[in-house]
Amino acid sequence: MRKAHAVAVLVLAGLVLSGCGSGEDKPQKSRDAQSGEDKGSPSKGPTDASAEGTMIDRAAGSWKTISKRQGDRYFQTVTIADGHVTMKGAVLDCSGTLKPDTVEGKEAPSLTLTCKGGSDGGRGEGNMHLGDKVTTDDAVAFDWEGPEGGWGGPVDSFRRTS
Results as ranks from 00 to 15, higher is better:
G23S: 07
Q28C: 07
A59Q: 01
T54N: 05
G36D: 07
R2E: 09
G45H: 03
E24N: 06
K39W: 06
T47G: 12
V16F: 12
G53I: 03
L15A: 11
L10Q: 11
G53N: 03
G21Q: 04
P46Q: 06
T54H: 10
S22E: 06
T47N: 09
G40V: 00
E52P: 00
V16T: 07
V11A: 13
A6F: 12
Q28T: 12
G19E: 05
V7L: 15
G23F: 03
A6Y: 09
C20Q: 08
S22L: 10
S43F: 14
D25P: 00
P27M: 05
A59W: 00
R58P: 01
K26M: 11
K29Y: 04
A60F: 04
G36R: 03
K29D: 02
A51F: 09
H5M: 15
A6L: 13
Q34M: 06
P46S: 13
V11F: 11
H5P: 01
A49W: 15
K44H: 10
I56D: 00
D57K: 01
I56K: 00
D48K: 06
R31G: 04
H5T: 15
A13G: 10
I56F: 07
L12V: 15
A51C: 15
S22K: 04
A13L: 13
G40E: 00
M55A: 09
G23M: 03
G21Y: 01
M55Y: 03
D48V: 03
A33D: 07
T47L: 14
K3P: 00
C20H: 05
D25C: 11
G19A: 01
L12Y: 10
V11W: 09
S43Y: 11
H5G: 13
K26R: 13
K39L: 04
E37Y: 02
E52G: 07
S43H: 12
A4C: 07
A60C: 07
G40F: 00
S50W: 05
Q28A: 10
D57V: 01
A49I: 05
A4E: 10
D57L: 05
S43W: 06
K39R: 13
R58W: 01
K44G: 05
D48R: 10
S30I: 08
R31S: 04
R2P: 04
D38E: 12
